[in-house]
Nucleic acid binder design. Structure first.
Length: 475
DNA sequence: GCTGGACCTTC
DNA sequence: AAGGTCCAG
């Protein structure tokens, strides 16, 4: 409503609005946290550093936290000291929208400063940056507890954090995630926000043409020209995630079906209404603030599971990603696969796959094989199955979660996040071959060649060979 | 309690 | 098939 003010001034103002998140890249890597399928609202945006004479490009993320549109970047600085020069990374953010935050209603300066503090607090909270234990230290603990897998992986997933999202947003997003892929989940969440969420008005920073002094006068900014409508107003509209009240009142199944939600369309209005009945967001926040005991953890999961569209997996995600239940390990097909591959030397998990998975005839055989070495006497699994997708039963989830919690402890959920991130294509590619979890294709190929899966036996007892400490990622 | 299907789209 | 859940039997 109030975008009549001078956009130029605002633009300059924004340039200086970057504030430090007061963390380090050991504790937070944006690339390993924001686009990893915890939250579906972050968009990677390339920017140019206007203070750098070469206008060096750097990447930022733009997303919405509550009612603020937030942009985050990792800024690298090179410092020279005597002979050595080294770089430090500062993680910074700024608020882009003008109808919340950086404008104080009564031009009171103190209020403004309070607001500034509040913003920083909120953003830090969203990233769980006020944990009692820094992520770096946790990773060291995980590595000690599990040198074979986590220890060798930790350098490649440094800064892979677990977020702390608004509970209703998190829960509803993950209801959309069932039997679905990330790209479509993002689309669904975005359309839900556009349809029902509060508008958040941002000034658009029409960079580029300001100075094309840079050597490569390329302008890949054609999209700015295309969006001429928005360019004129110099504002861009983002949307808050709708509140449960908004959804309960306005949202209906048919509309969501038309938006492409498929069979999940009926869950969201039903859940919103039920949540409102139970007290709205405050009801969920109560689950968050309950004492951090195992009992309360299970209670939270039970409560969530009684909502429409929420099974154990979705409840686990909401509990871990928004309700401070840090030992929860939400087990999905991917986590199951990696647990079976790396944490199942005795084939306990493998033996539970009574339903054949898509590709592995050998999985069951192998599991049964190893099972025989132990004493447990589950009925030997049939060797021949049809090609049905593997579905994870609650029993399997429980077993898998227990196994990981027994290894990683009270912050097992954080370890899970890092292990999961290591499986994402972009990160996986940065891993040395021997750390990559074999894909189905790999296994198939192996079977065809009649190979014997050489590793398996050395597993837990192999000492961590001196994997060159390559402190770093590929990015 | 546990298991097998159906369920909406789309990459 | 994709980061499951619900509902019968």
């Amino acid at each position: 409503m109030k975008n009549k003010r001078s956009s130029i001034k605002r633009r300059n103002q924004n340039e200086e609005n970057w504030k430090s998140l007061r963390t380090t890249r050991d504790d937070l890597s944006l690339d390993r946290t924001l686009p990893t399928g915890q939250s579906f609202r972050w968009q990677k945006v390339e920017e140019y550093d206007e203070n750098d004479e070469n206008e060096k490009k750097y990447s930022t993320y733009v997303g919405v936290i509550g009612r603020r549109v937030v942009q985050i970047r990792e800024r690298m600085e090179f410092e020279e000291e005597e002979e050595k020069s080294y770089e430090t990374t500062t993680i910074e953010f700024r608020v882009l929208n003008t109808n919340e935050s950086n404008i104080c209603k009564n031009e009171d300066k103190e209020n403004g400063e309070q607001e500034e503090e509040q913003v920083t607090k909120d953003v830090r909270a969203y990233f769980n940056l006020d944990d009692p234990i820094p992520l770096k230290d946790l990773f060291e603990q995980f590595s000690k507890a599990d040198p074979y897998r986590f220890g060798r992986l930790s350098a490649y997933v440094r800064g892979a954090r677990t977020l702390r999202q608004p509970p209703a947003e998190c829960l509803i997003s993950f209801v959309c995630s069932s039997n679905n892929n990330i790209a479509r989940i993002k689309k669904m969440v975005e359309s839900l926000c556009e349809k029902y969420g509060e508008e958040l008005v941002c000034n658009v920073s029409s960079r580029s043409r300001s100075r094309s002094s840079g050597s490569s006068g390329r302008d890949d900014d054609e999209e700015n020209e295309v969006n001429d409508k928005e360019e004129i107003n110099e504002s861009k509209i983002y949307h808050a995630f709708p509140t449960v009240e908004q959804l309960a009142e306005k949202c209906d199944e048919q509309t969501l079906r038309d938006l492409g939600f498929g069979y999940r369309a009926k869950f969201i209005p039903a859940m919103a209404k039920e949540l409102v009945k139970r007290g709205g967001e405050a009801y969920l926040l109560k689950l968050r603030d309950a004492p951090q005991t195992e009992e309360e953890k299970y209670r939270a999961i039970t409560e969530l599971t009684s909502l429409p569209g929420v099974g154990p997996k979705v409840a686990g995600c909401a509990a871990l990603f928004s309700l401070d239940k840090k030992s929860v390990v939400p087990v999905d097909t991917h986590v199951w696969q990696l647990a079976r591959e790396h944490f199942d030397p005795n084939g306990e998990l493998a033996s539970m796959e009574t339903t054949a998975s898509t590709t592995k005839g050998s999985a069951n055989e192998e599991g049964a094989e190893q099972q025989r070495h132990k004493e447990s006497s589950t009925p030997t699994t049939p060797t021949k199955q049809k090609d049905k997708p593997l579905s994870i039963t609650p029993k399997m989830m429980k077993k898998c979660e227990e196994m990981l919690v027994s290894i990683y402890g009270a912050y097992a959920g954080y370890a899970h996040t890092a292990l999961f991130v290591a499986e994402l294509p972009t990160v996986r590619e940065s891993l040395p071959e021997h750390l990559r979890t074999p894909t189905k294709a790999d296994k198939k190929r192996g079977e065809k060649n009649g190979e014997k899966k050489p590793e398996k036996k050395k597993r837990k007892f192999l000492k961590v060979d001196g994997e060159n400490k390559s402190d770093d990622d590929g990015a």
